[in-house]
Design a protein around this nucleic acid. Structure first.
Lengths: 216, 216
DNA sequence: CAGTGGTCTAGACCACCAG
DNA sequence: TGGTGGTCTAGACCACTGA
């Protein structure tokens, strides 16, 4: 048997929940019982149940027991696109074309267009906080995409993405080769590191040719 | 000490990664060493490291060791809105107004508007597969939102969400009290249960007053 | 081949909290 | 207050895989 025992137990219970045999609110056997039915130690049962808790399928309360959790759509995993990686994955060329560069106070402001396969994919407006990333002032972003540069400079930051639908203004429409007023998907991402804001970026995509996918 | 030891270990390593003391690619001590430095059993160290692997901060390879993972923007957690719950959370009244109901073959087609605080929040077009949920044919959705009804009927399904930006057509604009052509955020969600499609829903939101948030 | 992580055991003590 | 889950131990064997 190459599949771990705790995985087998997890799958067994998960199948019973997803098939509806165990309805939401139903009580599961206590660890001591399952230890007997599966013929293993309590730790192994516990590991399986802990995984189910983290998956959101089970809720556990001391003294009360373990219960099938109430279903919830709320939390899904969203794949935020790495524009460069996506373009290259399609076998297309990729380039970042810098449009403007401006320094005010301690902020570096950039605008540019991500180009894949010769076509404009995304308009980007970005500010980089020089107080957090001073070296950004000396980088030539006409050859390097600021996104990938920052990813290497400031690892393991936290980010918040806000997803909007906006009408393309004249400038954006021109750059993305759209009709003015066309519906666009805009992703605003603020990135933090160690409590300090690193960068804020607005990325605007053609709504007709771009969408985000989130799976549960 | 009320915080678990494995949590302490996890936090310790996580802090060193996020502060940059441990850069991406850096090798972590082997479990046997950490067991000594933290003065605990190997299982406890293992539990902490396993949690870090699941969080995507650490990668582990047998014989090679444990390494700080390369940062990745790609995977974030998106909070798919429960329209009714959100409205009620704001202290507003909520209602679902059924606009049309139509049965073709084995599909039930519905359109309706989610209304919160007296204002239209979202236009919804939905198909429910009667072969999967036969009882849906007999439900009066003029009093019950089909989304919440289905959530109770078919627990623990899987879903895929696609997020688009679209221009409001005349009908949608009228229903949502928008100008025709206004940019709207549209969430298409297909729901599965046990390999069978349960429902497909298109929800259209006013882009000016609605956005999605995804945190990492 | 040997170092490393993955898994598992058979116990133990404790905090919590519903009955 | 006793049942339940949360945690932890000090071992053990094994699978994998990189040096």
């Amino acid at each position: 048997m190459k599949t771990p025992l705790h995985q087998t137990i997890r799958d067994d219970i998960e199948a019973r929940i997803k098939s509806g045999v165990l309805a939401p609110g139903a009580r599961l056997p206590v660890e001591h019982e399952m230890q007997v039915t599966f013929g293993c130690s309590r730790m192994t049962v516990h590991k399986a149940l802990t995984a189910l808790v983290q998956a959101g399928l089970v809720e556990r309360r001391k003294k009360a027991g373990s219960f099938v959790a109430a279903p919830q759509i709320s939390a899904t995993v969203l794949e935020i696109p790495d524009i460069e990686a996506q373009a290259r994955a399609r076998g297309e060329t990729y380039a970042f074309r810098l449009l403007s560069r401006h320094i005010t106070d301690d902020k570096l402001e950039l605008t540019g267009v991500h180009i894949g396969g010769g076509r404009p994919l995304c308009f980007e407006y970005r500010t980089i906080l020089l107080s957090t990333v001073p070296s950004a002032a000396d980088v030539d972003f006409s050859t390097v995409s600021p996104g990938s540069w920052l990813l290497q400079q400031v690892p393991w930051s936290q980010a918040e993405n806000r997803i909007h639908a906006v009408a393309a203004d004249a400038k954006t429409a021109d750059l993305l080769d759209l009709d003015p007023g066309a519906a666009c998907l805009r992703v605003d991402r603020e990135t933090w590191h160690d409590g300090q804001v690193v960068t804020f970026v607005q990325q605007t995509f053609d709504g007709a040719h771009f969408h985000l996918v989130a799976r549960f």
